[in-house]
Design a protein around this nucleic acid. Structure first.
Lengths: 218, 218
DNA sequence: TACGATATTTAGATATGCCTAATTCTTAGG
DNA sequence: CCTAAGAATTAGGCATATCTAAATATCGTA
């Protein structure tokens, strides 16, 4: 069993590795977890000793298969608890992240299996993110970042990769949510911001930064 | 917010204080939490500084109103999660304690309120123990220890105060559970063991020690 | 290719929560 | 009312996970 701290590092490493496919730097993790880079170096060594990551001095870490497996189980728990809160406890999808961050660290395989069963073995969570099965397998899904979308194409929001409260509240305010149907009306060359039509009802301007944190499927 | 460790101390202190009405000793807590007495002294000081207990050197602690309130909220969470696991996830009542020990430390008032609502505001958990409401109020219940029961009297098992896996499994094996109707057939003078009739179906011998860890209501 | 900016690591501290060993306090029996 | 056993505390350490400041490594660009 791993400590809560190790689990949080592994999850952060996994998510960054998945989106870049490259070694994960100390700075990237320091920023994500809001801690000092020196602390990250310490933990990189520790995770390396446990063979959860491959650590090359001054070059960052890559998760091993073992590390990925642990990360996927945490993601599975996080997403199942979020689904539970929305489906059974009537939370709205933008309120559940913080609490799921705590619930994901409860250790009990049988609890999670039963929860999965109660929820009817969902494949995607309320944010549209895929839920790994108990073997760590992700359901098939072709998604791209909205920032890489093409003008005129229709997309459906399938995931939100920046989970800060501020961002989720912002999305809520402008009327964007997982499942929203959007299409790109135009893209501003100079700063990468885009005009978006949401559910064919209204148009908004989205910054490049925001668009880089939204996954969409065609 | 208190640390997980502080919460566990407070819970242990509260439970012992409630059953004895007297100051709680370092040894009692050391034994309950399976740690060294010297460590307990450290924590007694810390909890004292936070006004969660009144600590008198070499004389133990008593929980303050503030400390009781915290302990009751943890008990509330523990018992609601146990109820959830039994009612919604089809666990049996003797399997849920360990996991509830983890879940009780998740911090979210709204989560617990919604869970309470989902469960229909239960007053007692699957072990027969009373669930404090969100203000810390316990439902009325007159219970005594089975060891203090009288020969010939019928009782209903309302609570189990020793939550070790071993004891719960033992109860399961001999066919005792919260809600069981028992009556005391005879009490052995020399060691305080008692012959018990369970649900008018079978008779068993229960040690004094076991009888001291079962609460019953008339 | 060399330099300066940025990233990373090392060294030395800090707080929490635990330990053991030694000391001090409390209390029950003679 | 004194003493010895048991209970509690103190003193000194250890591991985890964090920090700051200083030293070192990497990398893009002139």
């Amino acid at each position: 069993m791993h400590t809560l701290t190790e689990e949080n590092y592994l999850k952060a490493i996994y998510r960054i590795y998945e989106s870049t496919g490259d070694s994960v730097s100390t700075t990237a993790i320091a920023e994500k977890l809001q801690i000092n880079a020196a602390s990250v170096t310490d933990m990189f060594k520790k995770l390396g000793q446990q063979k959860l990551v491959v650590y090359e001095k001054s070059r960052g870490v890559k998760p091993t298969d073992k590390g990925k497996k642990v990360a996927l189980q945490i993601l599975r728990k996080h997403r199942l608890w979020e689904t539970f809160m929305v489906e059974k406890l009537k939370f709205s999808w933008d309120e559940v992240h913080e609490v799921a961050e705590q619930l994901e660290h409860v250790h009990s395989d049988i609890l999670i299996e039963r929860l999965d069963q109660l929820l009817g073995y969902p494949k995607f969570d309320p944010h549209g993110d895929p839920i790994p099965d108990k073997n760590g397998k992700l359901p098939a899904q072709v998604s791209i970042l909205l920032s890489q979308g093409k003008i005129g194409h229709p997309y459906r929001i399938s995931g939100v990769s920046e989970n800060t409260d501020a961002f989720l509240k912002y999305l809520n305010k402008i009327g964007l949510a997982p499942g929203s149907h959007v299409s790109i009306v135009e893209i501003e060359e100079f700063d990468g911001s885009m005009k978006l039509s949401i559910d064919n009802k209204k148009e908004i301007i989205l910054s490049r930064q925001a668009a880089e944190n939204l996954s969409v499927v065609s």
